[in-house]
Amino acid sequence: MKGLRRTHYCGEVPETEQEVVVCGFADRVRDMGNLIFINLRDRTGLVQLAFNDETDRAVFEKAQLVKSEYVLMAKGMVRPRESVNEKLKTGKIEVAVTDLRILSKAETTPFEVTNSDKVNDELKLKYRYLDLRNPKLQKNIITRHKIAQITREYFYDNGFLEIETPMMMKSTPEGARDYLVPSRVHAGKFYALPQSPQIYKQLLMISGYDRYIQLARCFRDEDLRADRQPEFTQIDLEMSFVDQEDIQACIEGYIEKLFKEILGVEVTLPLPRLTFADAMSRYGSDKPDTRFGMEIQDITDTVKDIDFVVFKSAIEAGGSVRAINVKGGAAIYTRKEIDKLVEHAKGIGAKGLAYI
């Protein structure tokens, strides 16, 4: 195999009769005496390597030495498989190996790579290089790459310039604490890592770079929450000489392209729009989950003439009376459960909770 290089990825081996060279990890080895099958895995998928009585004896004996996660290079002819596997892209073919090279041996792994999602996080992080071989994680990383590629292509086509901004900067007021980097040259002084490129993109706007895009790394020293982490990447952009409609149309076009090329989903434009006032009125939140069916209902006109002092005093003070209609709730909620809801309402600042 001297002088050869990989001619195909494992998951992209053609179905026609031709000679290929593939490289990857031994995913599964089945030694049945006079037959050996090895599933070879790389980031594109799997292909089956086949060894039988017609295989050169030295090659067959080398295949007998292969264990899980060995790194292999194999040369052979592509041929139809006797037992088709419809779950694989290459499930209709196999490679009848004529030459085999063991590029690197492997010790027994602490967990099965393809099932690493069932292993505890501490063990996975200790052997992160093994965990990252898991096809599910590789798919996530490849998808992230495709998103970055599509993002750049879309905004380039719409006249945006990709401009890098400094990673070490003067500390500026933001939403969290800064990560600080001590300066060797200026004793006692510190640089801050950017929470976002806010100042730089505003400088670019007033400098005449009217459309800016960057896949920016951001750093925020704040406590971990479901939607917070110390460092992240955001799609950061700025536009000059535009109005609200221009911005919404630009971003909607990007969402449409992204969903179509990544997920194969057709997005109907324009996207549904909700004003801040409507969002607060219907959901009580400026970032609502619109799938939530129990919207807030304004019943002020319905109860304005009743003598219930709580409602009456609120309306007389210029307020309103609003309710959530829990359909079927009367048959489900007990008095004890309703009392818990009343206490919860008090705990988040309300004076109480009326119910009918």
Results as ranks from 00 to 15, higher is better:
I251Q: 11
L258Q: 10
T108M: 03
V22S: 02
A354I: 09
R184D: 04
P166G: 04
E238V: 05
M73K: 15
Y156R: 15
P230G: 04
H186V: 13
I213A: 10
R128F: 01
Q138H: 04
Q195G: 05
D99L: 11
V78G: 00
S285E: 07
H186M: 14
D117S: 08
K304M: 14
N158G: 08
H145Y: 12
E266D: 14
G33P: 03
D210F: 05
K126L: 01
G284V: 13
E15Q: 15
T109H: 13
A58F: 09
E252I: 11
T108V: 11
E231T: 01
V47F: 13
Q297N: 06
L40P: 00
A317E: 03
V310F: 13
L103P: 09
Y9M: 01
S104F: 02
V84N: 02
P14E: 12
E94S: 14
L35E: 12
R6D: 00
A330Y: 01
R152K: 14
D278H: 11
I147N: 02
K146E: 12
G11T: 05
S240T: 07
L100D: 02
L137N: 04
N140G: 02
L130W: 10
Q244N: 09
E69M: 09
R101S: 06
T109V: 10
V181Q: 08
Y254N: 14
V265T: 14
N115A: 10
R177W: 05
M32S: 07
D339N: 10
I332A: 06
N85K: 14
V78W: 03
V59D: 00
I206T: 11
A330K: 13
V95Q: 08
E222Q: 06
L46F: 15
L193F: 00
M1E: 01
P166M: 09
S171R: 03
R79Q: 15
A249V: 04
V71T: 12
N85Q: 14
D246K: 02
V29G: 00
E245M: 09
K351V: 03
Q149N: 10
L4E: 06
H8W: 04
Q234C: 02
A50F: 15
E94V: 15
L132K: 12
Q198K: 02
T302Y: 13
F241P: 04
E164Y: 08
R41G: 06
K92H: 10
D307E: 13
L274W: 06
L341P: 00
R41E: 07
M77R: 15
L49I: 13
C10V: 08
T165W: 07
S171K: 06
G24V: 07
D27A: 07
A277P: 00
H186C: 12
H344Y: 12
E238D: 04
E162Q: 09
D298L: 02
D339L: 08
F60E: 05
E69W: 05
E153K: 14
D210G: 04
A323K: 00
P166I: 09
L215K: 06
I213D: 00
A314P: 05
K351H: 07
C218G: 01
I247H: 01
G253D: 07
S240K: 08
G91I: 15
Q138M: 07
